[in-house]
Amino acid sequence: MDTTPLRRYLLINPNTNPLTTQRLQDVLQPQVPPGVQLLVQTARFGAPYIACEASHAVAAHACLDVWTTQRGTPEQPLDGVLIGCFGDPGLFALREVSGCPVTGLAEASFIQAASHGPFAIVTGGERWKPMLQRLANSLGYGAQLRHIETVAPTGAALQADPDMAIRCLTQACQQAAQSGVAAIILGGAGLAGYARLLQAHCPLPLIDSAQAGWEVLLQQKAPAAPTSRDGFYAPWVGLPPAFSQVPAQCHG
């Protein structure tokens, strides 16, 4: 009998919409290999759709909140965390404290898209444009991100109306393809699975941000000597008990 322990990965949906969580799970669960367990959790608080700076900031807190309750034990820790939002709220904070690989839909998509050359993004919600440009700059992909095509409907609206989404996103992808790039990222948790449907209508490779997130996370290895392992640098006041129950290994 195989006694190899399961590798456990946590997928966090940083918004409060369970339909988005279900979509991510429906797309990614068939890609989970044997010996791997995908734990899926929805944020307890925040916005049903992350569409602005404020909702993005709250979503980072919500990601940490989920991690504190789902991080496992020293005997059975998490092997990786995937932030299920194309904007990666809480990426750097989770990477600092978790001691395991952490990536988000955007970072993972940048990694895959950059392997083709300069790339573009197609996503829903016009306020995402400066936010994604800033994220790309902070992750070292600012020069390779040449174009961001936002469509008027938010990701939530696109998710709610698949027929409208296909029409709208097809036009946006065709527009982005004219910007001199080598690949296009279709970004958004609510758009998971759409790249496959739209590829026939786009002359360039389309990257599904959810699939990219899962593929990149599985390829990453835990840090050889993490600076922290399940630890916060600061004590907390007024936060849920789970925050204080995390070992304070890094308190100064």
Rank of each mutant, 00 (worst) to 15 (best):
R7N: 00
R8D: 09
Y9T: 04
Y9K: 01
Y9D: 00
L11P: 03
N13F: 08
N13T: 15
P14L: 03
N17M: 09
L19R: 14
T21M: 12
T21F: 14
V27I: 15
V27F: 00
Q31N: 00
P33Y: 03
L38Y: 07
Q41S: 15
T42H: 03
F45V: 02
F45R: 01
G46E: 00
A47F: 01
P48F: 14
A54Q: 13
H56Y: 13
H56F: 10
A57R: 14
A57E: 03
V58D: 01
V58P: 00
V58M: 12
A59D: 03
A59S: 03
A59T: 02
H61K: 02
H61P: 00
C63H: 00
C63W: 02
C63G: 03
C63M: 02
L64W: 06
V66P: 03
W67G: 11
W67S: 05
T68A: 14
R71I: 12
G72R: 05
P74K: 01
P74Q: 03
P77H: 01
P77W: 00
D79Q: 07
V81G: 13
L82D: 13
L82S: 04
I83E: 06
I83T: 05
C85W: 04
F86R: 05
E96I: 03
E96H: 08
S98P: 14
G99K: 11
P101F: 14
T103W: 07
A106C: 11
E107N: 09
T123F: 06
E126P: 12
P130T: 04
M131T: 09
L132G: 11
R134E: 11
L135R: 09
A136C: 10
A136H: 11
N137Y: 02
L139Q: 09
Y141E: 09
Q144G: 11
L145R: 07
R146K: 15
H147T: 12
I148R: 02
T150W: 09
A152L: 15
A152T: 14
T154V: 07
G155M: 10
A157M: 13
L158M: 06
A160Q: 12
P162K: 02
P162V: 08
P162R: 02
M164K: 06
A165N: 00
R167S: 11
L169N: 06
T170N: 10
A172E: 11
Q178N: 13
S179V: 07
G180R: 12
V181K: 10
A182V: 06
A183Y: 06
I184T: 10
I185D: 04
G187K: 01
G188S: 05
G190E: 12
A195N: 07
L198N: 03
A200E: 13
A200P: 08
A200L: 10
H201D: 15
P203E: 12
L204N: 14
D208P: 13
Q211G: 14
A212K: 10
V216P: 06
L217G: 05
L217W: 03
Q220R: 08
K221S: 15
K221T: 15
K221M: 14
A222T: 14
A222S: 12
A222C: 05
P223K: 05
A224W: 11
A224G: 15
A225K: 15
P226G: 08
T227L: 15
D230V: 05
Y233R: 10
A234R: 01
P235A: 04
V237R: 02
G238W: 09
P240E: 01
A242I: 02
S244D: 04
S244C: 05
Q245D: 09
P247S: 01
A248P: 00
